[in-house]
Simulated assay, not measured.
Amino acid sequence: MRSLQSALAKILLIGSAGFLAVDARGAEFIVKASTVTEMKAVYGQVESRSVLPARARISGTVASVRVSEGSQVGKGDVIATVVDDKLALQLRAADAKIAALNSQLDSARTDLQRAQDLLAKGAAAQSRVDAAKTQFDVVTNQLAAAMAEKAVIEQSAKEGDVLAPADGRVLTVPVAAGSVIMAGEPLARVASGQYYLRLSLPERHAVEITEGARVDIGERGTGTNAGFVKAGEGQVAKVYPEIENGRVIADVEVADIGTYFVNERTLVSIPVAKRTVLGVPPEALRIVHGIDYVTVETADGALEVAVVLGATFQDAGHPRVEILSGLADGDKVVLP
């Protein structure tokens, strides 16, 4: 009985050992060539879609400036106030002229009424009534012209307020209170519209850059020495047809670019080419004394092959490690 139990134990041990050996060998992975997109890390410069100047509409002295660099403004907000002292004098002169014409109008109205009364009594000729009527019309028109001139002066005084041309952020304020400024000169520059990234790449990449291509945006403040750290994605919106100084220019739209400074540079990874590579799953690699090995199934059995590794990439959603040398297309790699 004891010998039977011992025999059964040996059979179970042999069976389990065989099962472990098959499990340790695992499945096979057929090495196949894959096409991957080669990315290039370049610097993109943040720019505003439009930069509008807030210009003075009248000449005069800057009385006050209500914004500074970096201020957020809305369309129609008062940025500064320009005062022209001559406008106050012109306004007083217009008021005096209107008062004088009002007196002349009252006198002409009285003369016209008197002439009409005398004509009704037969004591005056029709010509006198016509003359009085003409004088009344002349003074009425002069008064209307004087009031229109006053309205122009009042409108000029109102135009002393310099308004923001659009919603955005103030970039520069080149004037200060007390400065003398002419009509049409800018008092501030406002960056309006969505920010975007402008890229400048070598001419050899011009053919590979296409509109609609996905672009990886690096983390703000990182450089090439620190390595590329992806923080977001963008899309190539426009590729300019003219090459300047051996560089091709492209614009990248970013949905939420954040609070970047205008003209700030940030790292961008953009697709520039495609190449064919061989890759294996990371679990197929084994490191022995600092050398990477892959187990390959051959006609003579399993063989350990030393390989040189490249970059990692994604193949149909699965991670792969690029094999620069040591394997060929169609090789059967044994997974653990």
Score class of each variant (00 low, 15 high):
V207F: 14
E211F: 05
A213D: 02
I181V: 15
A188F: 01
Y195E: 12
T172K: 08
R169I: 10
V180T: 11
A164L: 08
S192D: 07
G178P: 05
E185N: 13
A213W: 04
V170E: 02
V180P: 06
A157V: 12
M182H: 13
R204M: 14
E208L: 04
A166W: 01
V170C: 07
R204F: 12
P165I: 11
E208T: 07
K158T: 15
Y195C: 09
V162T: 09
P174A: 07
Y196K: 13
V207N: 15
E211M: 12
E211V: 15
D161V: 10
V175Y: 00
M182C: 09
Y196C: 05
G160A: 14
G184L: 08
M182K: 14
E208R: 08
A176E: 10
G160F: 06
Q155Y: 13
E185P: 04
A213V: 06
R204V: 14
T172C: 02
L171H: 03
L197E: 09
G212Q: 12
V173K: 00
P186A: 12
L163V: 11
A166V: 02
L201P: 06
P165Q: 11
L187R: 01
R198D: 12
L163S: 09
G184H: 06
L187A: 01
L171Y: 06
G160R: 06
R198V: 13
Y196N: 03
L171E: 10
Q155M: 15
R198I: 12
I181E: 00
P186Q: 08
M182P: 06
E185K: 14
I181S: 00
Y196S: 09
L163E: 05
E203L: 09
V207H: 13
V190T: 02
R198M: 13
G193F: 03
P202K: 05
E159W: 13
S200A: 12
T172I: 04
E203H: 03
M182F: 10
R189G: 06
L201C: 09
S156K: 14
T210M: 08
R189T: 07
S192P: 06
P165L: 10
A177E: 10
A188Q: 05
Q194K: 14
R189P: 01
K158F: 15
S200W: 01
R189Y: 12
E211W: 05
E203P: 08
A188T: 00
G168P: 00
E211T: 15
R198T: 14
H205Y: 14
D167N: 13
G168C: 03
S200P: 00
A166T: 03
E211I: 07
Q155W: 11
V190D: 00
E211Q: 15
Q155I: 11
Y195H: 12
V207L: 14
V207Q: 15
S156D: 15
L201D: 02
S192F: 03
G160H: 14
R169W: 04
G184Q: 04
Q155L: 15
S179E: 11
R198Y: 06
V170T: 03
L171G: 04
D167S: 10
E185M: 14
R169A: 07
V162E: 01
S156Y: 09
R204D: 13
E208I: 02
V173L: 08
S200Y: 00
A164H: 09
P165A: 08
G212S: 12
A188R: 00
A157D: 12
R189I: 05
E203N: 03
T210H: 12
G184K: 05
R214P: 10
R189W: 11
E159C: 08
A183H: 06
Y195Q: 14
G168E: 00
L163H: 12
G160M: 07
A176I: 02
E208N: 13
P202Q: 01
